[in-house]
Simulated scan of single mutants.
Amino acid sequence: MTSADRVAEAAGIVLAGGRSTRMGTPKAALEWHGSTLLARITGLLGRTVAGPVVVARAPGQVLPALPGAVEVVDDPTPGQGPMHGIASGLDAVGERAPRAFVCSTDLPLLHPAYIRAVLARLGDGVDVVMPQVHGHPQPLAAGYRTAVAAHLHELIAAGRTRPARDLTQLRVVRPGEDELLTDPALATADPQLDSVRNVNRPEEYRELRDRPAPEVTVLTGDGPVRVRAATRGAAAAAVGAIVPDPEGPLVPGDVLDLRPSLT
């Protein structure tokens, strides 16, 4: 994916400041096929949106290594629900992008096609795109106008801190599964909408981590090779090569071109 393929005028925000009480260990640092959950999610956003990618964390929270371009902001009131982190992230990117995809750090199967499908619905007259998937609203796999940050701060001051319930004065659209899957790219890449499957408990993490890595294609001088790899480095290693950005995330159907340059 090149910079020209990224969604224009869009930023990415990842919430990493949760207490992870049900997991028992910080989810951001959980291993994911040689990387970490947080590195994977920020990398996926970085390859999908043209604007900045920001992680909202608790003050002083130690994070795993991140791609160099990722920014970090502190949620001034950690542990009080996601609304604070969403508002902090929107504050950080508001002058640089009019819209943002906001997600939690625990969506290891998030696909760029899902991010694109959500942001495509964040057009004029819409403040928030909050999909209704697998029977639940998805405020942490959603699109937000960055201008709504001021309203979120007002809600927080009034003690209304549940984004799935309290955004009543905003223009919120709630596409369901059938509507989202009218996007042909998403229907092909993620027909089960596993993009929104999060890992709150150890058994949920183990279930998804035990799945095979994504099947991708590596183009070599001797022809295409299909391998299973969740990162650029793992895909390159499978054919005896080395690449820059080895922790760059891969998703099913990706093509990594390692053919020798003709120049």
Results as ranks from 00 to 15, higher is better:
Thr2Glu: 15
Thr2His: 13
Glu9Leu: 11
Thr21Tyr: 05
Arg22Asn: 11
Gly24Thr: 11
Ala28Asn: 04
Leu30Asn: 10
Trp32Gly: 08
Ser35Thr: 15
Ala39Cys: 01
Gly43Asn: 03
Arg47Asn: 08
Thr48Met: 05
Gly51Ala: 03
Pro52Glu: 13
Val53Cys: 08
Val55Lys: 00
Ala56Thr: 13
Arg57Phe: 01
Ala58Ser: 12
Gly60Met: 06
Gln61Thr: 06
Leu63Arg: 01
Ala65Pro: 04
Leu66Gln: 03
Gly68Asp: 15
Asp75Phe: 04
Gln80Gly: 13
His84Ser: 14
Ala87Arg: 14
Gly89Tyr: 14
Gly89Met: 14
Gly89Phe: 13
Gly89His: 11
Leu90Pro: 05
Ala92Asn: 13
Pro98Asp: 04
Ala100Gly: 06
Val102Tyr: 08
Cys103Asn: 07
Ser104Gln: 13
Asp106Thr: 07
Leu107Asp: 08
Pro108Gly: 13
Pro108Phe: 05
Ala113Ile: 01
Ala117Pro: 05
Val118Arg: 02
Arg121Leu: 15
Gly123Asp: 14
Asp124Met: 14
Met130Tyr: 00
Val133Asp: 02
Gly135Asn: 02
Pro139His: 02
Pro139Asp: 07
Ala147Asn: 02
Ala149Cys: 06
His153Cys: 02
Glu154Thr: 06
Arg171Cys: 02
Arg174Pro: 05
Gly176Asp: 15
Glu177Arg: 09
Glu177Cys: 01
Glu179Lys: 06
Asp183Val: 00
Leu186Met: 03
Ala187Trp: 01
Ala187Thr: 02
Asp190Met: 01
Pro191Arg: 06
Pro191Lys: 07
Asp194Cys: 12
Ser195His: 04
Glu203Ala: 13
Glu203Pro: 02
Tyr205Val: 03
Tyr205Thr: 03
Glu207Asp: 10
Val216Phe: 00
Val218Trp: 11
Val218Ile: 11
Leu219Trp: 04
Pro224Thr: 05
Val225Ile: 10
Val225Gly: 01
Arg226Ile: 06
Val227Trp: 00
Ala229Gly: 13
Ala230Gln: 01
Thr231Trp: 11
Arg232Gly: 12
Gly240Cys: 09
Ile242Ala: 14
Glu247Asp: 14
Gly248Pro: 03
Val251Gln: 13
Val251Thr: 15
Val255Ser: 09
Ser261Arg: 14
Leu262Thr: 15
Leu262Ile: 10
